[in-house]
Nucleic acid binder design. Structure first.
Lengths: 221, 221
DNA sequence: CCTTCAGGTTAACGACCACTAACGCCGCTG
DNA sequence: CAGCGGCGTTAGTGGTCGTTAACCTGAAGG
């Protein structure tokens, strides 16, 4: 149905398709899928409007390829890291550390895709959405497995929720893109790493949930 | 609810406006601002299409009122909690605990608004967007102040980034709305509280960033 | 009873937008 | 040179959607 692989499919897909995908991702992340017209996408790569249809079946196809690609890369990378860290004799702590590092790399390198990942899923056709969700679920499972092994005292539902919460933490990178943010990529990565490890560490802490003691009852707004 | 006589003009707008706003928030969060038509919003409250224009100047006005309302409530609530916790003799730890609890309440009670908060900001008119951003900045400042006081060893940029990251963590609630998630609201709140405190605690930990030791060098993705 | 007004209704309009049609240019290959 | 296929162009088309116009209804109020 879709355009056949014109050339070598995998290694060095040349220029235009990737260029279009990158700009489309950026624009979709900035203004939302429905907020961007095909003319804008075309203009962003130097061609105009319907010229895009020589490379993609439609606007939906671009989004689908983006979201499926993200999910695949996330899951494949996570899987690889689990295998590598395990095969080199690392325990669950090492595996989790590698997963965190990998996710941070992804979040820092592909902010636009991170944004799209959980924003425009509803715009996909049913089949594509199912595929993305399946990949997401498998990726989450990698984390739940290792976190559950690290914190046997926590129930699976709790671990799963914690994993999602830490995803939210790591995926916050688009919000800190301000001007004079952190010194650099390395510092940001280090900070996120510490925060993520700190969050997970609280699962087995002896410390209770609320150290604030009295706290202020909210009641009325 | 019926305490106010129906003739009071301005202050207590009765039911319809609020009803429309609630449904609009839900729909916008589900399918995005541009993904929802006015007919759908109208249908959700039992009227059809252009009837909404008796209550709002337009679709944009609904979104603006939603986003400004969220930001105002967030900031006002945070401010109140800082004052209350401080006046009752609480130190920075107590203040931070109260801020966290308040944000969790908000995240659990108004998932749709949390989603809109950082998703549809770009759709606002310039003046409205400025107002929302200003309120957001002031809210962040509340957190940065207290977290900075709790962790004097961290630079301001680092603290700011950590605050944003913890916001991402706490705002992850829309992603755990699955079927058999956590037992209940209380358990979810307790978990989020622990995770947030754990993340902040890592700022002053003696523990270095990467406890995984050797870890797997990622290089290419 | 007649007026007024808030809160609806349906019909229509205008803008926008994804997509298609028809055509042009250019570097191949034979 | 002929022809062809990849890649781009502009003009047009159908559909959707926000918004407005014109009209209706029912309750309050003198």
């Amino acid at each position: 149905m879709n355009d056949a692989p014109t050339r070598t499919p995998a290694p060095a897909a040349p220029t235009r398709r990737e260029q279009i995908l990158r700009e489309a991702a950026r624009l979709f992340a900035e203004r939302g899928f429905h907020g961007v017209g095909v003319d804008e996408i075309g203009a962003a790569v130097g061609i105009s409007g319907p010229g895009l249809y020589r490379h993609f079946a439609g606007k939906d196809a671009m989004l689908a390829e983006l979201l499926i690609g993200i999910s695949e890369r996330l899951f494949a990378g996570g899987q690889r890291r689990v295998i590598d860290a395990t095969s080199t004799g690392g325990g669950p702590a090492a595996v989790l550390g590698s997963l965190i590092d990998g996710h941070i790399d992804f979040a820092l390198d592909d902010r636009a895709l991170i944004t799209l990942h959980d924003r425009e899923l509803g715009q996909l056709r049913d089949s594509d959405r199912k595929q993305v969700r399946s990949l997401q679920r498998q990726y989450v499972e990698l984390w739940v497995d290792v976190v559950g092994r690290l914190h046997p005292g926590s129930g699976e539902a709790e671990v799963r929720a914690a994993v999602h919460a830490v995803f939210g933490l790591l995926n916050s990178t688009p919000h800190l893109g301000r001007p004079g943010a952190l010194p650099g990529r390395t510092a940001t990565a280090a900070l996120l790493r510490r925060l993520a490890h700190g969050a997970f560490a609280s699962l087995s802490d002896g410390a209770p949930a609320g150290p604030a003691g009295p706290s202020v009852k909210p009641s009325a707004g």
